[in-house]
Design a protein around this nucleic acid. Structure first.
Lengths: 134, 134
DNA sequence: CTCAGTGCAAACTATTTGCAGATTT
DNA sequence: AAATCTGCAAATAGTTTGCACTGAG
């Protein structure tokens, strides 16, 4: 119920749809879900929420900082709960599995490269598209 | 005319549309263009090519290895001519400017991280979203 | 009770596809 | 001439929006 506070403190009402969507994000084995897969999961639970509402709520969650939205070079966006610690992603092209990782060497290097060009980093996205060895 | 050979050796006919699109990719100051911006540029040149053809040709170019397609976390894809040397991207969120860069330290580190997880890298995408310092 | 939230259907944006006529080889 | 290619318009996928109704506070 802790996360419901997040909804409220974002100035949003704690509605059924928002609670359901948040719970799916919290409890699904997949940490990265598309609006469509959230919809399918809710239908399977007999807890149907309109797809329009799912999109609306996810965008509100992103605005509120509760969620992050990724594109992973595909046309379909996926959402994950905002991580406490920043991390990057490794996506297996065979299985679709998403592995999260974090590396200080890379992080630091990025900062240096941006600064060298006269910029500071607002955000970044590193995705490794991988497949199992042999 | 060198690039036209690329079209032919991909098994594609050297048509007006393909030459026009390739020339835009070669000569535009922006190295990363969306189908829509290519369309606009061609219209301005009075060399209108149907938007459907632009999409078809760009995808053929990607299949042929002539182009690379990126999403840069937006819904609109952008295309660039395949670089000889791999590079990553820095996108200025203020100006939209795209800067290409390459860094061996990061590249090597990525390989290590993938291997540590039992994967090998097929491809990767690193995008720094930046803004000018102060 | 009031205002924000919801579901539905229609609208939109980016992209793809069927088809008949035009081009390349 | 044969096969590929193109433009158009219609189709599709993902996402957003208008509106009348519902529900949270």
């Amino acid at each position: 119920m802790n996360r419901n506070k997040e909804i409220r403190s974002a100035g949003l009402k704690v509605t059924h749809a928002r609670k359901s969507i948040l719970k799916v994000l919290e409890t699904s084995k997949e940490s990265h879900l598309s609006a469509d897969s959230i919809n399918k999961i809710l239908i399977k639970k007999n807890d149907d929420v309109g797809i329009a509402t799912i999109y609306r709520v996810l965008n509100q969650f992103v605005d509120a900082g509760i969620c992050i939205k990724h594109h992973f070079d595909s046309e379909q966006a996926v959402f994950e709960l905002s991580p406490i610690e920043h991390h990057d992603h490794m996506v297996c092209v065979k299985t679709g599995k998403v592995i999260e990782f974090e590396d200080d060497v890379i992080e630091k290097r990025q900062e240096e490269l941006a600064k060298k060009n006269g910029y500071k980093i607002i955000d970044h996205s590193l995705v490794l598209y991988v497949e199992p060895i042999e």
